[in-house]
Amino acid sequence: MQGVVKVNSALNMRSGPGSNYGVIGTLRNNDKVEIIKEVDGWYEIRFNGKVGYASKSYITIVN
């Protein structure tokens, strides 16, 4: 499943599904990501070869 990031500035990509996990990357508005699965309001995603987590509130699913 594919998604597009929708933010005003930047979205942190984290090592786990929560804001208490470390930041491993930064996503920008309109970045395209691969959604692997949903975990407690977060998406596990793949972006630029990295796998991490981002809040699903800021990612819109596209077909």
Rank of each mutant, 00 (worst) to 15 (best):
N63Y: 02
I35Y: 03
G41A: 12
N20I: 11
N8R: 08
I35C: 03
W42T: 02
K56L: 08
S55H: 12
G18H: 05
Q2W: 14
Y21F: 15
N12D: 15
F47M: 08
K56T: 11
K32V: 15
E34S: 05
V33E: 00
L27G: 01
E34G: 04
S9N: 13
N63T: 15
R14I: 06
E38L: 07
L27P: 02
A10N: 11
G52R: 01
N29G: 09
R46S: 15
A10M: 13
K50R: 10
V4S: 07
Y53M: 02
V33G: 01
N30E: 13
S15G: 11
G3C: 03
D40M: 08
Y43N: 01
G16R: 02
I61M: 09
Y53N: 01
N29H: 13
L11Q: 10
G52C: 03
V33N: 00
G16F: 02
Y53E: 00
I59E: 01
Y43H: 02
N12W: 07
M13P: 03
M13S: 02
V5M: 02
G16I: 01
N48H: 13
N63P: 13
D40Q: 08
V33S: 00
K6N: 15
K37M: 07
D40F: 07
T26W: 08
I45Q: 00
I36V: 10
G41S: 10
A54H: 01
G3P: 02
V33F: 06
Y43W: 08
G49P: 03
Y21K: 03
R28Y: 15
I35S: 01
N30V: 03
V33L: 06
K32P: 14
V5I: 09
R28T: 13
E38S: 07
S19H: 15
S55E: 11
N12G: 10
V51S: 09
E38N: 04
I35N: 00
I45N: 00
I35Q: 01
N20V: 06
Y21H: 12
R46K: 14
K32W: 13
T60C: 05
V5Q: 01
G18D: 07
S15N: 13
V33C: 04
E44R: 04
P17V: 03
E44T: 04
G22S: 12
N29K: 07
R14W: 14
D31R: 03
S9C: 05
V51D: 11
Y58I: 06
V4P: 01
S57K: 11
E34D: 11
V33H: 00
I59C: 02
Y53G: 00
V62M: 11
V62N: 09
N8F: 07
R46H: 15
V39Y: 12
E44N: 10
V7I: 11
F47A: 10
V4Y: 04
S9F: 13
G25F: 07
N30T: 08
D40V: 08
Q2V: 15
N30W: 08
E34V: 04
R46P: 07
I35H: 01
Y21G: 03
Y53I: 00
G25K: 06
K56F: 04
E38W: 04
E44H: 06
V5K: 01
T26H: 14
R14M: 15
E38T: 07
I59S: 01
T26I: 14
M13D: 00
G22P: 13
S19F: 14
N20K: 08
G18A: 05
T60G: 10
A54F: 04
G25Y: 07
L11E: 11
K32S: 12
L27M: 10
G18Q: 02
K32G: 07
G3V: 04
I35A: 02
A10F: 13
F47Q: 06
I35W: 02
S57R: 11
N63K: 09
V5G: 05
L11D: 04
G52P: 00
E34Y: 06
V39I: 14
G49E: 14
G18Y: 01
D40L: 07
S57P: 12
I61R: 07
I45W: 00
G52A: 09
T26V: 12
G49N: 12
A54L: 09
G25C: 04
I61N: 06
Y43C: 03
G52K: 00
I61D: 05
Q2H: 15
W42C: 02
G25N: 08
V4K: 08
S55V: 13
E38M: 06
V7H: 13
N12M: 08
Y58L: 09
V62F: 10
S19C: 07
N8T: 14
A54I: 11
L11R: 07
V4F: 05
V51N: 15
R28H: 13
S57I: 11
K6I: 12
V39M: 11
R28C: 05
T26R: 09
R46V: 15
K50W: 08
S19V: 12
N63R: 04
N29Y: 09
T60W: 11
Y53C: 02
Y43F: 13
V39Q: 10
V51F: 09
Y43G: 00
I36P: 01
G22T: 14
M1P: 09
P17Q: 02
S9Y: 11
N20R: 10
V7N: 09
I61C: 04
I24T: 11
G25H: 10
L11V: 13
G3R: 02
S15T: 10
G52M: 03
M13T: 04
Q2M: 15
R46M: 15
G16C: 03
L27S: 02
N8W: 06
E38V: 07
N48S: 10
S57N: 15
E44P: 00
N48M: 14
N20T: 08
K32N: 14
I36D: 04
W42L: 02
A10C: 06
K37D: 09
N48K: 14
R28A: 13
N12A: 09
R46A: 15
P17E: 01
E38Y: 06
K32H: 15
T60D: 15
G41M: 10
K6F: 04
G25I: 08
I24S: 07
A54R: 00
N29A: 08
P17W: 01
Y21W: 12
D31L: 04
G22Q: 14
G16W: 02
Y21P: 01
N63C: 06
G41C: 05
I36L: 11
Y53P: 00
I59Q: 00
G3T: 03
E44F: 07
G41P: 07
S55P: 09
T60Q: 11
I61P: 12
S57W: 09
V51R: 06
R28W: 13
M13R: 00
N8E: 15
K37H: 12
V4N: 06
E34P: 03
Q2I: 15
K37V: 09
K50E: 13
T60I: 12
R14L: 15
V23A: 07
G22Y: 09
T26K: 10
R46F: 15
G3E: 02
N48L: 11
I45D: 00
Y58T: 11
I24P: 01
K50D: 14
T26Y: 10
N30M: 11
R28M: 15
R28D: 13
G52S: 04
V33P: 03
Y53A: 01
N20E: 13
I61A: 09
K50S: 12
E34F: 05
A54P: 00
M13N: 01
N48Q: 14
A10I: 10
R14G: 02
N20P: 03
Y43E: 00
V23G: 04
F47R: 05
V4Q: 09
K56C: 04
K37F: 08
V51I: 12
I61W: 04
K37W: 07
I59M: 04
V4A: 07
Y53H: 03
N30G: 13
Y53S: 01
Y53L: 01
I45M: 05
K6S: 13
I36G: 04
N29F: 10
Y58K: 07
V7D: 06
N29V: 05
G41F: 08
G41W: 06
N48F: 11
K6H: 11
V23P: 08
V23K: 08
N29D: 14
Y58N: 14
V39K: 08
I45G: 00
K50L: 14
V23W: 05
P17L: 02
I45F: 06
L11S: 07
G3F: 02
W42G: 00
V7T: 11
N12K: 10
N8V: 14
M13H: 03
N48G: 09
I24K: 04
A10G: 13
D40W: 05
S55G: 11
D31E: 11
K6E: 11
A54T: 13
K37Q: 14
Y58M: 12
Y43M: 06
I24F: 02
K37P: 00
M13G: 01
I24R: 03
Y58H: 15
S19T: 11
I35P: 01
I24Q: 04
K50Y: 09
M13E: 01
I45T: 03
N12C: 04
G16S: 03
N30C: 05
G41I: 09
K37R: 08
S15L: 10
G41H: 07
